[in-house]
């Protein structure tokens, strides 16, 4: 009987809520790992809201912290030949591409003994092989249950680590939405074909060892928003809205730049989303789409990119360069999404 579960769920299906509740109901040491700091903080906040303070048996960690502190460091000397060498993470640096993997010290670590970003999970997999499974063996003794949130962000050797966890004695729950893959832990070539939405394929290939569940209810978005978002990924199952109250302004809208200020004033509060800081939001405070992931907003105003505008015209998903970003932006809202569409010249 497999003790691993992968839950692929639509936006607003209370993924994080599920993790928080399961973690609080677990005896023994629990680890919750997620890639982004924002999400890690959000999980901590949710737990604190529920029970007042973080219970001592629960640890919430960033995915890289988990890999470095709990997987790489304990047995590091097997590859680095030195104890207590590894410091942390070098997020930006790249290794010299002529370095051979046999030179572990230089291949995985920079001069300050910080990991190259692409090297962390690679190191963990190599280390586990080298130590005949000591890395996973240790995790089995330490943790009863490991949760991985936003699993769609994992890529490359991360998937090999995930595979080791799936096949370990530890109860594993991974939760995510392949449609929301706006970030990736690393850019290595390994498992490239499973990146993004294709993670669902990787998981279904392992359905014999990791039970696959899908959640198609959204407790956040009304049906009109669900339908719009579903259309971006026609291959994925349809989403049903549950219990979202109706308002006087529901659904997806297009407005002209001249109408923006009046619109915001009329439907306040309206949160403004943009691609990045180079976008002119007409003086309105705005948040990058990538950062908005995980949050729930009532009404959203989006300054779209060119590909998004093209999509709005003929609804052909192939025109979208980054469908996940549009999906994330639309599914933040509970009631309404408005796109700022400049008039055609």
């Amino acid at each position: 009987m497999s003790n691993s579960i992968a839950i692929l769920a639509a936006a607003g299906s209370r993924k994080t809520e599920h993790i928080v509740e399961s973690a609080l109901a677990t005896d023994g040491r629990v680890l919750i790992a997620t890639y982004t700091n924002e999400n890690r903080c959000q999980i901590v906040r949710r737990i604190e809201q529920k029970v007042g303070a973080m219970p001592p048996n629960i640890t919430v960690m960033g995915w890289f912290s988990f890999l470095i502190a709990q997987c790489a460091k304990p047995y590091q000397r097997a590859l680095t030949k030195e104890p207590l060498l590894i410091r942390g993470l070098n997020f930006k640096g790249q290794r010299n591409r002529f370095t051979k993997k046999e030179e572990a010290r230089r291949y995985f670590l920079d001069a300050q003994a910080d990991f190259f970003r692409d090297a962390v999970s690679d190191f963990v997999v190599c280390l586990n092989n080298k130590t005949s499974g000591a890395v996973i063996g240790r995790l089995e003794r330490v943790f009863t249950h490991i949760f991985v949130d936003e699993v769609q962000d994992l890529a490359g050797y991360d998937l090999d680590v995930l595979e080791l966890l799936i096949r370990s004695k530890i109860a594993l729950t991974v939760v995510g939405d392949p449609r929301q893959c706006t970030l990736t832990t690393n850019t290595g070539a390994r498992h490239k074909k499973y990146r993004g939405a294709a993670l669902a394929d990787w998981l279904s290939e392992r359905a014999d060892v990791c039970r696959l569940e899908t959640r198609t209810e959204s407790y956040r978005c009304n049906q009109a928003l669900c339908d719009f978002a579903d259309a971006i990924f026609p291959a994925m199952p349809r989403t049903t809205s549950v219990g979202v109250p109706a308002t006087d302004h529901d659904g997806v809208f297009e407005i002209k730049p001249a109408e923006v200020h009046a619109y915001v004033a009329r439907y306040s509060p309206v949160d403004v989303l943009r691609h990045d800081r180079t976008v002119d939001t007409m003086g309105l405070p705005a948040v990058n789409i990538g950062i908005a992931k995980g949050s729930t907003l009532d009404r959203v105003l989006i300054f779209p990119t060119k590909p998004m505008l093209a999509y709005l015209k003929d609804r052909n998903p192939a025109k979208l360069k980054a469908p996940e970003r549009l999906y994330v932006a639309v599914t933040r809202a509970r009631f309404s999404v408005a796109f700022v569409v400049p008039p055609v010249r």
Partner: peptide, 26 residues
Amino acid sequence: RGSNETEILRGTNNLAGEDACGLRLQ
């Protein structure tokens, strides 16, 4: 000695390079 409480301290970062639970002050 290895136990539920001490396993989190397990590793080989010690003088002996031994896979063990423990503390090191240096």
